[in-house]
Amino acid sequence: MAEAPTAQKTQKPIVPFLRLPENPSEQPYLAGTRCKTCGAVYLGARMACSKCFATEGLDEIKLSDKGELHVFSIVHQSAPGVPTPYVAAIVDLPEGVSVRCNIAGVEPDPKNLKFGMPVQMVTEAIRTDREGNDVIAFSFRPA
């Protein structure tokens, strides 16, 4: 993301592959890379394809904000400062890539989570960084 040389506070994504368009009418999205040679899809940018080793034809694609719950765990004990319990999950996106995320909007109990259930990405400001910028994170919730 290009930085304007001002002290103005802004929104910053928690990871580079979460894109926050400057135009407020556009929704945040996850950016991926698709290998033209073999079709493998990755989160974020790539130097080469780790499936077929191609170093060219690695095109950025906009990933879907809808996916399916692959698996989850209910985390009850974590590193200091991490609120528990919460649902940690792997979500499969239709492009053929998976995302590690929290599942929000459900009580953290296995009975509320169904394999393959449709989920939808949402974003929110979760923290303020040292420069005072809002840190934006994504999670998925039942669609």
Partner: peptide, 21 residues
Amino acid sequence: DPAYSTEGVLGSGLMPAVFGM
């Protein structure tokens, strides 16, 4: 900057959750 820590925000990369999943 710890404000960008993903643990517990973007799921978990810690062993208990990885092997739980």
